[in-house]
């Protein structure tokens, strides 16, 4: 009960902030919520299943470009384009999972990294359609969903909140189902789970597709809400970001991805005012986290204050 109160409370709080925040932070928080949805997707694979992927930008970009190219070249309306993004994410993550799950540990990390890099380079190679690094702007006219203009800051915030709330509750529900319990068991001891008669490959496959599809939803949402698609979103940096956010917030906690994204976003926002080398902060935080706090912020909360935090 307390668990549901906590997570519903966060969503209500974010809704209340819609009326309270000044314009600058209002816009930032909308962005944080979309990126946190991406981190939630990542967390299902990394935090709960224990598979460290270095290629999630591929899924984010699959959603972003599935949606964006659908609007740009097929003339789709936003809703079907969003769905196309989801389907693209599911197909790409399913395909990569079939290959990458044949490996484990370090090999899994490198395989996902390499395929994501190949995907990024492919986006550059087909620059005539994707406009490569430069990217393309998704016209305001094609960003109206059922007559609601998503480029308006108010609507954008609420749409981001709906996307984030859906992803948050979905992941909360998922990790408390028997399926989610099996995922955690795979993270802790895969051999033993297999001995108990579970099909670990099928579970990992499903986890990767769910994770990739949520990441794609975040990507498609990002494109719709902020009106831009560029190859940068497919680069290695965007595979490292969700890892950083989840590690900082606490891997294997439902709230961790949001907390980590929020902290990191403002940390980078503040430091980029001082220097252009803002990725330095990301590097220092990564090293410090692995050295001193591998549990992350919410992981520490769980360890010290509330053992039952999901």
């Amino acid at each position: 009960m307390r668990v549901y109160a906590l997570h519903a409370g966060l969503i209500v709080l974010l809704f209340a902030l819609h009326f309270l925040l000044p314009a600058y932070h209002h816009g930032n928080l909308a962005r944080v919520m979309v990126l946190a949805s991406y981190a939630i997707g990542y967390n299902i694979l990394f935090g709960y299943t224990g598979l460290l992927s270095l290629g999630h930008a591929l899924f984010f970009a699959a959603g972003l470009y599935g949606m964006g190219l659908g609007i740009q070249h097929l003339g789709l309306a936003p809703a079907p384009a969003f769905l196309l993004g989801l389907v693209a994410g599911a197909v790409v993550s399913g395909g990569l999972a079939l290959l990458a799950l044949r490996t484990s540990g370090v090999a899994f990390m490198i395989v996902t990294l390499m395929f994501a890099q190949a995907g990024y380079l492919t986006l550059l190679y087909f620059g005539t359609y994707t406009r490569g690094d430069e990217g393309f702007v998704i016209a305001q006219a094609s960003r109206a969903l059922w007559g609601i203009d998503l480029s308006d800051p108010g609507n954008r915030y609420l749409a981001a909140l709906i996307l984030f709330g859906t992803c948050l509750l979905l992941s909360l529900w998922l990790v408390r189902t028997p399926f989610g319990r099996v995922l955690v068991a795979i993270r802790e001891n895969e051999e033993r789970v297999r001995m108990l008669g579970y099909d670990t490959f099928a579970h990992k496959l499903a986890a990767m597709v769910i994770s990739g599809t949520i990441a794609a939803a975040a990507g498609a949402g990002y494109g719709l809400l902020f009106g831009y698609a560029g190859a940068t979103f497919a680069s290695v940096q965007y595979s490292i970001f969700p890892l950083l956010w989840v590690l900082l917030g606490g891997a294997g906690t439902v709230l961790g991805p949001f907390v980590g994204t929020l902290f990191m976003f403002y940390l980078i926002d503040l430091s980029s005012g001082i220097t252009t080398a803002y990725m330095l902060i990301a590097g220092v935080v990564l090293v410090a986290l692995t050295l001193f706090a591998p549990q992350g912020l919410m992981g520490e909360v769980r360890r010290r204050l509330w053992k039952g935090l999901p």
């Binding site: 460290l52 270095l54 540990g105 370090v106 990390m109 490292i240 890892l243 590690l247 080398a277 803002y278 990725m279 330095l280 990301a282 590097g283 220092v284 935080v285 990564l286 090293v287 410090a288 986290l289 692995t290 050295l291 591998p294």
Partner: peptide
């Protein structure tokens, strides 16, 4: 193995950005 990869990613950004 896995934690050193994350740490060397951090090291990458530190060296590059410095």
């Amino acid at each position: 193995p896995e934690r050193t990869i994350v740490a060397t990613i951090g090291l990458l950004y530190i060296i590059q950005q410095l």
